[in-house]
Amino acid sequence: MNAVPRRIQRVLAGISLPVYLLLYAPLSVIAIFSFAPSLGHPGPNVAAYGMLLNDPEVLAALRRSLTLAIGSAVLGTMLGTLMGFGLSRFRPAKGGGFWVGTLPSLIIYLPIIMPSLVFGISELIFFNFVHEYTGLLSAGLLTMGIAHVTFQAPYVALVVYARLAGLDPNLFEASQDLYANAVKSFVFLTIPVVRPALIGGFLLAITLSIDDFTISFFTAGPGSVTLPIYIYSAIARKGSSPEINALGSLMIATVIGVALLYYFVTRHRERSNRIPAVA
């Protein structure tokens, strides 16, 4: 970009490179400390990783985290896709009044805007009351899953909505002219068209689920300790340990691996500068 003089470009680089360093410094520190010497293991070693992989508690937490993420993402993507599709296709173009025009948007933005602490505590109280009066929904993976779907669906809806908003409405008219009924047009036109958004939304839903701590923490029960909750209580109990560092490093490595994969997959598919979502 020749609009920015070389001198200023140098200043920008001079500030940005330390910022990049700062972004990765804490993550690298965890990785380095995971190899730190510990009792009975002098010198750099991988003992912490061995301990981790033989710890049934950690493996159970990992299994729960994955079950929760995939299970909630499936339902969250379904509900979210239908919402995004319905609102972009069937809502009157102009206004639609409060009930049809404004209220659905307000409801969809509620989980996104609400501070996660308020979100989590509201659910805690609600599930508590429901359990007290009906005996259903005792705190556990199910209540966590319900809460996760609640914050995943709106994000998926936004992704699908954004995809459909950039689409020619004549396409749908054309499918009607060709005598496709609503279901056929949904299966053969809408689904293929929104497939990238569908896959993107599903991955986003999984990321959101794995990234969340606060909402999970307040909806979890004694038998539903997931990885983030395991780490949090381990820190609270005994501070840092090589094992926690090893677990953290594995989680960071997974995320960076997935990010690189995402980059290389999308780079070949579309050349446009897509802006990845923050989660």
């Binding site: 910022v19 990049y20 972004l23 990765y24 410094a25 804490p26 993550l27 520190v29 965890i30 400390f33 990321t207 794995i210 990234d211 969340d212 701590f213 606060t214 990885l227 983030p228 780490i231 949090y232 820190i235 840092s240 926690i244 560092n245 953290g248 989680m251 960071i252 995320v255 960076i256 997935v258 990010a259 980059y263 780079r267 500068n273 897509r274 802006i275 990845p276 923050v278 989660a279």
Partner: peptide, 29 residues
């Protein structure tokens, strides 16, 4: 233009790790 997506990605990737892990990293630091 071809470098921008990857530079942006590198600025965002740390936010994809769990908040507890990210915060714990600063405790260590």
């Amino acid at each position: 233009a071809n470098m921008r997506p990857v530079l942006l990605l590198f600025a965002i990737v740390p936010s994809w790790t769990n908040q507890v892990v990210r915060t714990y990293a600063w405790m260590e630091l």
